[in-house]
């Protein structure tokens, strides 16, 4: 707790690069997760593809089904992921544990598949989804949450520790 207090004190000195790094992490995480999502969709692990969320629910053009649609949805998810990383950075960066990331992933999954589901006309209701789909997507979200959460928390923790050390050494 003592450490926590000290960290509170130098809040103002927080370097911008920490946020920048969190943003890079967010983007990379989004891109990797959406690529994994497409692969999982290709092998029928899940009946819904990342495309169904970000494009198919709104856009009805022929290019959506091609590689262009795939590339664009990867990009969109990467950008959306910036927002998610920002939320994690603001709210939870001080919890230095990977389990928070796991929980974050599960919450995010519940939010998208259960709470926000009515927003996406292309996604079946939660109860109508296959068990395989639910498990696969939950697994993906857990790994995604861990990636984002643990990376941001570790980076924050590590930077603070380094600053502390530099201060001690003068």
């Amino acid at each position: 707790m003592k450490e926590e207090n000290q960290l509170e004190q130098n809040k103002r000195e927080e370097p911008l690069s920490l946020i920048a790094r969190a943003m890079i992490t967010g983007f990379t995480g989004g891109v990797i997760a959406s690529i994994a999502g497409f692969v999982m969709n290709y092998f029928n692990f899940t009946e819904i593809s990342p495309k169904s969320f970000v494009l198919k629910s709104w856009v009805r053009a022929s290019w959506v089904d091609g590689w262009l649609g795939t590339a664009i949805s990867i990009l969109i998810i990467g950008l959306l992921s910036l927002l998610i990383a920002l939320i994690y950075y603001i709210a939870l960066r001080k919890l230095y544990t990977m389990w928070m990331g796991v929980v974050f992933g599960i919450i995010l999954w519940g939010l998208i598949f259960f709470v926000l589901q009515p927003l996406f006309p292309n996604i079946p209701a939660f109860v109508d989804l296959e068990v395989n789909t639910l498990v696969s997507t939950a697994c993906l979200f857990i790994l995604y949450g861990t990636f984002i959460g643990y990376s941001i928390a570790y980076d924050y923790h590590d930077t603070k520790e380094k600053e502390q050390k530099e201060k001690e050494q003068g």
């Binding site: 890079i24 992490t25 990977m98 857990i142 861990t146 643990y150 990376s151």
Partner: peptide
Amino acid sequence: VLFLTHMRSLRTPYLWPLIPF
């Protein structure tokens, strides 16, 4: 993956630099 992420070798996360990224 979670097992590997959770592991530490003398305070060093085992899957670094992937997770933490």
